[in-house]
Amino acid sequence: MLSYQHAFHAGNLADLQKHALLAMMLEYLIRKDKPVSYIETHSGRGLYNLSSVEATKTGEAAQGISRVEGMKWFSDDHPLAQAIAAIRDVHGAQSYPGSPLIARHILRKTDTLHLTELHPQEYAALRDVTGRGAKLYRQDGLELAMALTPPTPRRGLMLIDPSWEVKTDYTDVPKLISQVARKWNVGIIALWYPILASKAQLPMVMRLRAEHPDALIHEVHFPPAREGHGMIGSGMFILNPPWGIEGEAQRLSKLFATL
């Protein structure tokens, strides 16, 4: 569980699907002059260097953000593009924000951010880049999700984004979502999951679909990052999807289909 480090994968095609949908949902939430709670169960380090040894070793960023920026997937006024531009203004052109910094950029001072990360080095890096203005927790993210819900304020979003290295995640996460939804029925609950050549995710997705028929499930497919790589796509499950997010999902589907 503590071996995963997202620096090897930051800015890949899966990140782009997840972060585009996340940014659009957060932008929707701040349209009303009411405070928002944002909860993230697996935050990572928050900021990544796409020229690092880790990023260049896998080449996933080159196939992801570096490629699609040249293809103009995101207009300048897209909330993800704006977040990336703002982070690069501060940290340099090879920077890429993880979801904590995307959320911090979009949300306001009146909103509350709860960021969880168990890995000690990743937690320390996250603490350094977020500074004040976010509540950080070094503990199990799924346990904290239960402890924090329902949050105050009640309007808000929870992002669940585990590494999926722990096989029990495929059964524990759907159980958690049902429990959180009962406690926080107005919250947007977003889950990212990999689409694997082994199809290990299928029973979980079928269970989520059966238990939450009104949720949005968006999946995209793309070529494996390298020979033998098991991830061939990316999925987002969104409970209580905000208005307009389905249109962004359809737009992304068309873009991914061109790869």
Rank of each mutant, 00 (worst) to 15 (best):
M236I: 04
G11F: 04
T112K: 10
E165M: 01
K72F: 13
L144Y: 02
T168E: 15
A200Q: 13
A20R: 00
F256T: 08
G235S: 05
I232M: 00
L113D: 02
A10N: 07
A103T: 00
P120A: 11
S163W: 02
S253I: 02
K109V: 03
G244I: 00
R108D: 07
I39S: 06
A93E: 11
L50F: 10
D161V: 12
T152I: 13
I160F: 05
H218E: 15
A81W: 13
P213H: 08
H119N: 06
P35H: 11
S43H: 04
L118F: 10
H42K: 01
K32M: 05
D89H: 13
G233W: 07
K135D: 15
P213M: 05
A197H: 14
A257S: 15
A10L: 04
I160Y: 01
I106T: 02
P153E: 07
P97C: 09
K72G: 13
D128Q: 11
W184Q: 12
E165K: 03
R251T: 10
I84F: 04
S66H: 14
L252G: 01
E54C: 02
L29M: 10
R226A: 07
M146K: 15
Y48F: 04
R132E: 15
G46H: 01
W192C: 02
R154I: 14
A93S: 12
P162C: 13
L80Y: 09
W164Q: 02
A125C: 14
H119Y: 07
A61N: 06
S37T: 01
P242G: 04
V68S: 01
D128E: 12
A10E: 07
R104M: 12
S75T: 13
Q5L: 03
A83D: 11
L239S: 02
I84C: 09
I160M: 06
P35T: 08
H212R: 02
H119K: 08
S99G: 10
R207D: 10
V173F: 06
P223G: 07
S163K: 00
M1E: 06
R138V: 08
F256K: 05
I160K: 01
T130S: 14
K72L: 14
I106K: 04
R67Q: 09
H114M: 01
E227K: 12
L21M: 09
Y38F: 15
S37L: 03
M204T: 01
I65L: 04
R67H: 11
H119W: 06
Q201T: 06
H229Q: 00
L115D: 03
Q121D: 15
L142W: 08
P120W: 00
M236Y: 07
F74I: 04
Q17M: 07
Y123W: 11
A124H: 06
M71E: 09
M71G: 03
H105V: 04
Y4W: 02
I106V: 03
W164K: 07
E117Y: 12
I30G: 05
A145K: 00
S51W: 08
P194F: 15
L208M: 13
F74N: 01
M1W: 10
R104V: 03
S52H: 05
H218I: 15
R154W: 04
V90S: 03
P223C: 04
L176R: 04
L142T: 11
G92L: 07
G11H: 08
A61G: 12
E40H: 03
D128H: 07
S253F: 06
A124R: 14
A197M: 15
L118R: 09
G233R: 02
L202W: 08
T41A: 08
M236W: 01
G235K: 00
M146F: 13
F8T: 01
E27K: 14
D77P: 00
P223Y: 01
